[in-house]
Simulated scan of single mutants.
Amino acid sequence: MKKFAIILALSLLLPVGGHAASGAISAEKKALIDTLLEQSGQSAIAMGKQFSDLFMVQMTDMLKKAKPDIDPRAFVILGEEVTAVINEKIVADGVLNNMMYPIYSRHFNEAELREMIAFNDTVLGRKIIRVLPEISQESLRAGQQMGAGMGPEIEWRILERFRKEGIK
């Protein structure tokens, strides 16, 4: 999620000319990509909400730390303005979709997009969409635990090798 938020934040900085890359993609292919993004919970509206929520948490924490006695109305204003900007930039201006069209277009042709959409409409497809984020999070945690467990041995072996090689 955090990685996607960073990608979205960077996409907001793209110059207007960055949208031109999606010009060569047919309207039909764009519609297929839109459908696929919607099915997988990555539509501009869904991603805008996730980005907005993430931004709100970060901004709220910063404000509370900087001004513990801040007027509670500040958080209402913060929420309204974050939501407005995100909706304007990501949803209404189509920044997210224009960013995603060339990416999906490079990797999938129209027939493949149709097949993925059809699969996502099956019971198994819907389950995969539902559980993949959880699987990704669990895999990330498992990998972090594995890496943390190897850290001391890696450090010891590097230091031992440095000693043997005369590196100080």
Rank of each mutant, 00 (worst) to 15 (best):
I45H: 07
F51Q: 01
A27P: 04
A24W: 04
I117L: 07
M146N: 15
E81T: 13
S43E: 06
M150G: 05
S11F: 02
M146C: 13
A118V: 08
G17M: 04
E138H: 06
R114V: 03
I77S: 14
L54Y: 11
M100K: 09
T60F: 03
L54W: 10
F51N: 01
P68D: 02
M99G: 10
L132Q: 13
N98L: 03
L13F: 15
G151T: 07
G17P: 03
A84K: 05
K3M: 10
I6N: 14
V95N: 03
N109G: 14
Q137P: 10
I45N: 09
L36D: 07
P72T: 00
F108M: 09
P133K: 06
D93E: 08
K64N: 08
G166I: 00
M47F: 05
R161F: 12
R141Q: 12
A20D: 01
A111S: 08
A148F: 08
A31C: 02
M47N: 06
A92F: 06
L78M: 03
Q144W: 14
V91D: 00
G166E: 02
E138T: 12
L37H: 00
I103L: 09
R141D: 13
D61Y: 11
I154A: 15
K64H: 03
Q137L: 11
S136D: 04
E80N: 14
V85K: 00
T35P: 05
A142C: 10
Q39V: 03
K64P: 04
F75N: 05
M59N: 11
G143C: 07
M99L: 14
L10Y: 07
V57D: 13
A24R: 12
R106G: 14
A118R: 06
L8S: 06
G147Q: 05
S22V: 05
K168M: 04
M1A: 13
V131Q: 12
S136V: 00
G143S: 03
A44P: 03
A24K: 14
A9N: 14
V85L: 09
A20V: 01
G166N: 13
R114S: 11
E155P: 02
L54A: 11
E165M: 12
V91W: 00
L113T: 05
I86F: 06
P15I: 05
V16T: 15
A84F: 09
E110A: 09
V123D: 15
R130K: 15
S26C: 02
I45L: 13
G17T: 02
I90R: 00
E155F: 10
L78V: 05
L78D: 01
R163F: 11
E160G: 15
E153T: 13
E160I: 02
A148I: 02
A142E: 07
I7M: 13
L124I: 09
D53I: 05
I167F: 07
A111V: 04
M47P: 03
S105W: 04
R106D: 04
L63H: 02
G79Y: 00
F75D: 05
E28C: 11
L132W: 12
A142Y: 04
M59H: 02
D93W: 02
M99Q: 08
R130I: 02
G18T: 03
K3R: 02
G125Y: 04
I33K: 01
A66L: 10
S40H: 12
K2A: 08
L37Q: 01
D53H: 11
G125S: 11
G41C: 00
F51P: 00
R163V: 05
Y104W: 08
Q58W: 07
L12H: 06
A20E: 05
E155A: 15
I77M: 10
I154R: 13
G125C: 13
R126L: 12
